[in-house]
């Protein structure tokens, strides 16, 4: 949930996604158990884009993204829908059945999974448990106002 806590990081922002990456690397054994992950994921929060690179066992890079650098696929939704997803994760500690990444993009009404190539999109399925775990790190990353 959006908060005025001192440790809140404005959402959406590169630092907020980097904080997810930091939380994930603090729990490296969990990601190692899930296995190697190799995907460059675009994340669009309304007009704001982020490019998140996963290599070996975790996230190795988070950067601003204007859509020009290549990604395997991207997940896009309005800021309010991303906030709703994150708030659910923060309330529950993990995504509830209606708010897993795959469920949201399969429903396709608010979240879209797109990519230039099906093989790139298929990576979203191949590494889905790692990606889901990564976004669920949001339970420990408070959102501040953008």
């Amino acid at each position: 949930m959006t908060t005025d806590r001192a440790d809140a990081i404005s959402f959406p922002s590169t630092p907020w996604f980097r904080a997810l990456a930091d939380a994930a690397s603090a729990d490296e054994p969990r990601y190692r158990r899930l296995g190697v992950v190799e995907i460059t994921l675009g994340v669009n929060v309304g007009e704001q884009g982020y490019r998140i690179t996963f290599e070996d066992f975790g996230c190795t890079r988070v950067e601003d993204w204007d859509g020009s650098a290549p990604v395997d696929c991207s997940v896009s939704a309005d800021p309010s829908d991303w906030r709703e997803l994150i708030e659910h994760i923060q309330k529950r500690g993990s995504a509830d059945p209606e708010h897993t990444l795959n469920s949201l993009v399969l429903a396709g009404d608010r979240f879209a999974l797109t990519g230039d190539e099906q093989l790139g999109i298929d990576r979203f399925y191949r590494f889905n448990a790692s990606l889901q775990a990564f976004f669920e790190e949001a339970h420990s990353v408070p959102m501040g106002q953008a």
Binding site: N102, D122, Y125, R126, F127, N128, A129
Partner: peptide, 9 residues
């Protein structure tokens, strides 16, 4: 989620 990953491979 787990079987999906295997199948996609």
């Amino acid at each position: 989620r787990m079987v999906m990953q295997d199948e996609a491979r």
